[in-house]
Amino acid sequence: MKNTLIALCLIGVSLSAEAETHTVTLDLPTMNCAMCPITVKKALDKVEGVSQSEVHYDDKRAVVIFDDDLTSVDALVEATTNAGFPSTTIE
């Protein structure tokens, strides 16, 4: 029984270790007021897998940390676009 529990714990650790977090910077050229970043942040934070987002009005960019097993850059771009702020990735 003890060996079974240890094996299950090891499997759980190995599965969670496979997921990677990534960071992407999005260009949001259509943000034109102080309220825009709030709308963009809410849209990004609703995407499953996003662990953190920071939206900056001054440089019209968003930095997003996300789990690549749960979402993708395309989904993040789609979320901002659906909120009214089309975005593109910045390398």
Rank of each mutant, 00 (worst) to 15 (best):
K2I: 12
K2L: 15
I6L: 13
I6V: 15
A7T: 14
L8W: 11
L8Y: 10
C9G: 14
L10Q: 02
I11P: 00
I11K: 00
S14C: 13
S14K: 02
L15Y: 11
L15F: 14
A17D: 00
E18N: 07
A19T: 01
T25S: 11
L26P: 07
D27L: 07
L28W: 09
P29W: 10
N32L: 06
N32C: 08
C33F: 10
M35N: 10
C36Y: 06
V40H: 02
V40K: 00
V40C: 04
K41C: 03
K41I: 00
L44T: 00
L44V: 06
D45Y: 03
V47C: 09
G49I: 04
G49M: 06
D58L: 12
D58F: 09
D58Q: 12
K60I: 02
K60T: 03
A62M: 04
V64M: 06
D68R: 02
D68Q: 08
L70C: 07
T71E: 06
S72A: 13
D74W: 06
D74K: 12
L76I: 10
L76S: 10
L76C: 12
V77E: 12
A79I: 03
N82G: 06
N82Y: 02
N82F: 01
A83I: 10
A83F: 10
S87I: 10
T88R: 14
T88Y: 05
